[in-house]
Design a binder for these strands. Structure first.
Length: 508
RNA sequence: CGGGCUGUAGCGCAGUCUGGUAGCGCGCUUCGUUCGGGACGAAGAGGCCGGAGGUUCGAAUCCUCUCAGCCCGACCA
């Protein structure tokens, strides 16, 4: 039998990284910019991000946070204040050193008028926000401060990939200040939970909440927590982080307050963020060999109507039929919003037009032609399962919200099943090694997954393991999380005692 | 910053070794036949062959210099 024709070449199995690039291209989500490592996010990709923003923003507000905006530029001296922070970010900073350009005498321009103190384009905003918070906080009555900002940041990465790692990316960063360590820790965990809920219930992307090992901690944090998801190539993607910063940044920036008992104390801070990387995660969780597959709760359009009007004698009537259907569907509510329904009138051939929406991942594609019109019916295709069926128009309108919910649930269930299927408890290093070793060394096939195993090593052991096998500890699952069992054991790598199992995987 | 490679139409490439009027596929435009699973035919539009300098009657092709990008390594939301 001939191989089924797929919209995306190569397929996931043939060449996963190339497939990923092609999906983005086929869905017209983003492309590389003339500036190395930076991307242009096109409307289809940006609307997805806007939908992520809308939902998350509501969750932040519901947990008591407000938005604000801090500057793009950070004085170099600020970044120097926290030792671990400097070390973590120094190697990937864009630095502004001049404030204007002048004629270089050769038909070009050269920088002129050097700044007294260079400015750093923010790689993250702890230091500048901390500086402001130090002014704003005097009394325990000023606390907590619960602020989030939506912004862009720049990290001059060596190797970049659309959405997953770009030199400039969009994100949100929450920065909070608390009077006590307990309260700050509670905030740190609460926001991790907000991310996890969002990932599962909106993105349909199952995640594991856990703590990062010391080696993988945010530079300057006492504790870093993450949500980790499994992509279809079984690699892990860190999809969001929440940091308990202790008093490190409050000491560096001088965030002090007088407590109820009159003592001067340093405050406790947190920070937490997710980025446009989530879009990359979305693609690698749900997309298939025909392109993007979108969870309805994030889809820029829920339904696309394709009027079949190549026959001139019925074209006007069909269009009218499609328009009235569009209107009717727009009156339906899904996930608290009116349905977004696109009517594609472009003068393209049917197949070509339909495939363009398949590649964009629209959950439901509705064809409405002369035959449907006669029967007061529609022909509906589900993107996730590929199922197609004709049904009475009224039935479709009445069940469309339920169908979208079914797609949303189906995607989560499928992603969970994939993760579960490729997760293994492993108790000795030989098994561990063979689990993470591809059969074909030259062109590694999709292999491995999550290994849930005991760990008792230190930072150096972790480093050595990463160099040896490209496998890292993704996180240490929190109580109640997938992979957690709370039982002590023996480290598979060092043979030392292990307090509990951790999640190992190859990662992005 | 080390090691390898590539710059030719919007995109993907051939042509370079062996110098002689700039090519192919896709895409785009127009017309016709088609059309509810990705069409076909015909006619078109579109290039400082990355840049500068040289050799030559003549350079995409040879020489020198330069710029940019990609891959592999060290680094990473």
């Amino acid at each position: 039998m001939a191989k089924a024709k797929t919209a995306i070449t190569p397929t996931r199995n043939e060449d996963y990284p190339e497939w990923y690039q092609q999906v983005i291209k086929a869905a017209d989500m983003a492309e590389n910019s003339p500036v190395r490592g930076c991307m242009v996010i096109k409307p289809w990709g940006y609307t997805l991000w806007e939908n992520v923003q809308r939902d998350l923003d509501a969750r932040f507000k519901a947990t008591g946070h407000v938005n604000a905006y801090f500057p793009l530029f950070i004085p170099k001296s600020y970044l120097e204040k926290e030792a671990a922070h400097v070390e973590g970010f120094a190697k990937e900073c864009a630095v502004v050193t001049h404030s204007r350009l002048v004629d270089d005498g050769q038909g070009g321009l050269k920088p002129d008028s050097p700044l007294e103190e260079p400015l750093i384009v923010r790689p993250t905003s702890e230091t500048i926000i901390g500086e402001m918070y130090a002014k704003w906080v005097q009394s325990y009555r000023d606390l907590p401060i619960l602020i989030n900002q939506w912004a862009n940041v720049v990290r001059w990465e060596m190797r970049t990939r659309l959405f997953l790692r770009t030199a400039e990316f969009l994100w949100q960063e929450g920065h909070t200040v608390h009077a006590t360590a307990e309260e700050a820790m509670e905030e740190t965990r609460k926001m991790l939970q907000v991310y996890a809920d969002f990932a599962e219930n909106v993105m349909a992307m199952p995640v594991i909440c856990g703590e990062k090992t010391p080696g993988e901690r945010f530079p300057g944090a006492d504790h870093t927590f993450s949500i980790e998801a499994m992509m279809q190539d079984r690699k892990a993607l860190q999809a969001g982080t929440s940091h308990f910063l202790g008093q490190n940044f409050s000491k560096a920036s001088g965030i002090k307050f007088q407590s109820e008992s009159g003592e001067e104390e340093f405050a406790w801070t947190t920070s937490w963020g997710v980025s446009t990387r989530l879009i990359g995660g979305l693609i690698m969780t749900h997309a298939d060999d025909d392109g993007l597959v979108l969870p309805p709760k994030l889809a820029p359009s829920h339904v696309v109507i394709l009027p079949v009007m190549h026959k001139p004698e019925t074209a006007a009537q069909v269009l009218e039929y499609a328009q009235s259907l569009q209107k009717e569907l727009q009156g339906v509510t899904f996930d608290g919003r009116p349905l977004v329904v696109e009517l594609d009138k472009r003068d393209l051939r049917g197949g070509e037009k339909r495939w363009s929406w398949v590649k964009k991942g629209v959950p439901l594609i509705v064809e409405a032609g002369p035959r449907d019109m006669e029967n007061d019916a529609v022909f509906v295709a589900r993107r996730d399962t590929g199922e197609k069926q004709g049904m009475p128009r009224s039935e479709f309108v009445n069940t469309v919200a339920a169908q979208l919910n079914a797609i949303q649930d189906g995607l989560l269930a499928k992603a969970k099943a994939h993760r579960d299927e490729h997760t293994q408890r492993i108790d000795n290093f030989d098994d561990f090694k063979s689990y993470f070793t591809p059969k074909n060394a030259e062109r590694p096939e999709i292999h491995g997954g999550f290994a849930v195993a005991h760990w008792g090593g230190d930072e150096e052991d972790e480093d050595r393991l990463a160099k040896e096998m490209k496998v890292t500890i993704r996180n240490i699952p929190l109580e109640g999380q997938f992979g957690y069992d709370g039982e002590p054991g023996t480290c598979i790598y060092t043979g030392k005692p292990s307090p509990q199992r951790v999640i190992f995987a190859k990662s992005y």
